[in-house]
């Protein structure tokens, strides 16, 4: 990773200039940043202005009405790890973004500490694994079910409820590392192995049908 000798290079895509401008200010207290953070209100804007980035914080819903998963794909194609940064975490939309290559999701209301930790993890090439990440994975698991061992399904289900990994492992009577390994295996099955092109749109339509894609939560 690159954030060792110098600060982290973080790009922000958010259609509210006020929020976008506030993020570097808040982050700087918890994380060494490298120079000015490039900020844009659209993905295209960031692609045009930024050169090299360690992490992109991407607002899921942008004013230009672009599809979230497409945005993720375009950033990932540039080689930039994407961390979703959103007001409302909708598992179905997050799922589509994870499939497109996003590395995790952080709520805008979560503290700077959480965001800073997530930026470090993602810049290091890892996924920011939290309950929302697992909840999105669960959407995929529920949607189409290739072979998934009962234990693996249980880990995803339990972890997505917000239980700490330690507690999940205890409930399943396995070690914490084993539980983590289960989670990693599920991730491979659903996010990496066989990522057919049609799946995302299919998933999107299905989510619409199922009412999962209600307005920001139009729940």
């Amino acid at each position: 990773m690159s954030g060792m000798s110098r600060g982290f290079r973080v790009g922000v895509v958010d259609d509210h200039p006020a929020i976008a401008a506030g993020v570097p200010v808040g982050l700087r207290d918890h994380l060494p940043l490298d120079g000015e953070c490039p900020v844009a209100s659209t993905v295209r804007g960031l692609l045009e202005t930024a050169h090299e980035l360690d992490v992109v914080l991407l607002d899921i819903r942008l004013q230009d009405r672009s599809a979230p998963a497409d945005n993720v794909r375009r950033l990932v194609a540039r080689g930039w790890p994407v961390l979703l940064f959103t007001q409302v975490r909708q598992p179905a939309v997050v799922a589509a973004c994870l499939q497109a290559g996003a590395a995790g999701v952080v709520g805008k209301h979560e503290g700077w500490t959480t965001l800073a930790a997530a930026v470090r993890t993602v810049a290091g090439g890892e996924d920011h694994v939290n309950a929302d990440w697992a909840a999105a994975l669960r959407v995929l698991v529920e949607g189409r079910a290739p072979a998934l061992a009962p234990r693996e399904a249980q880990v995803v289900n339990l972890y997505s409820t917000g239980l700490p990994m330690k507690s999940v492992a205890r409930r399943l009577g396995v070690g914490e590392e084993t539980a983590k390994e289960y989670l990693a295996r599920v991730k491979r099955k659903y996010l990496e192995a066989g990522r057919p092109v049609h799946t995302r749109s299919e998933l999107y339509l299905r989510a619409l049908e199922d009412g999962l894609l209600d307005p920001p939560g139009g729940v």
């Binding site: 006020a18 506030g22 819903r61 009405r65 307005p215």
Partner: peptide, 22 residues
């Protein structure tokens, strides 16, 4: 389209409240 618009409304509302308290 409408959901997207609603979402933007909510983003603005939540963002305004959040920024103001911060």
């Amino acid at each position: 389209t409408r959901e997207q618009w609603d979402g933007l409304v909510h983003d603005k509302v939540l963002g305004a409240l959040d920024l103001a308290s911060r």
